[in-house]
Design a protein around this nucleic acid. Structure first.
Lengths: 117, 117
DNA sequence: CTAATATATGAGCATCTGTTCATGTATTCA
DNA sequence: TGAATACATGAACAGATGCTCATATATTAG
């Protein structure tokens, strides 16, 4: 028998949910984390700042593909870039991202271990 | 001047990140939260279980659109359904969803208040 | 200045997504 | 049984997405 989960009445969250713009903004950060390449980029940056070519090697995609995704993440304020000589170093710009990824990964790990039983 | 954010070395998370399937599974839950309609459905269900027609009224979309999205959420194990007479009642099936939404909303609220300054 | 390396970006394209429309199924009530 | 209500679902279509390819820009070395 499954359990139902409800959150305790949280007036702050409740008030957020009445604001269309905040809901939209929230969906945007989840969207950023919903793509495999972007998730890899962000998790790599959770560990430490990295150049574009380092990210390209980690994610096993072309330089162009990485740059396009980095642009999206920049536009959404999730990473920021600084030039260092020939390289451009990207860093995480938002502390919430790490929290979200952690919870998402825990969810995923549990889901998969349950399915495998 | 902006700060860089890094997570403290978390070996559990680290090990998750080496598993392609877990990363993919994580992106799937973020994908579920990345659509406005689905986000509304899930936040409504965070408060309490609801029938399809209740959800339709809350989200201001057609019954068909709601049903299609509910199917996706069911297939991904994020909600479950039970029939109650003529109605089908949907409930949240995963406690992590509420946590993710809360963090996502907090992020959004902060982001927007910063932008508005 | 020129070549080499690193990164960014626009166009094009195949694929994916979310909705609508039409219709099917399930349950209740008379 | 037949009508009404609630929900599910397949097909189709417009728009979004993520990639590749070609090319542009920026920095450094010679």
């Amino acid at each position: 028998m499954r359990e139902e989960h409800t959150i305790e009445p949280n007036e702050l969250v409740q008030s957020y949910l009445e604001n269309e713009d905040i809901i939209y903004e929230a969906t945007q950060i989840f969207d950023a984390l919903s793509d495999y390449t972007r998730f890899q980029i962000l998790s790599a940056l959770c560990m430490s700042s990295k150049s574009v070519s380092e990210l390209k090697d980690i994610c096993h995609v072309t330089q162009s593909a990485i740059s396009h995704q980095l642009r999206l993440l920049r536009d959404r304020g999730l990473v920021f870039a600084r030039r260092e000589g020939q390289h451009v170093i990207y860093s995480l710009a938002d502390e919430h991202v790490a929290t979200l990824m952690r919870v998402g990964l825990e969810h995923a790990a549990e889901t998969m271990s349950v399915e495998g039983e």
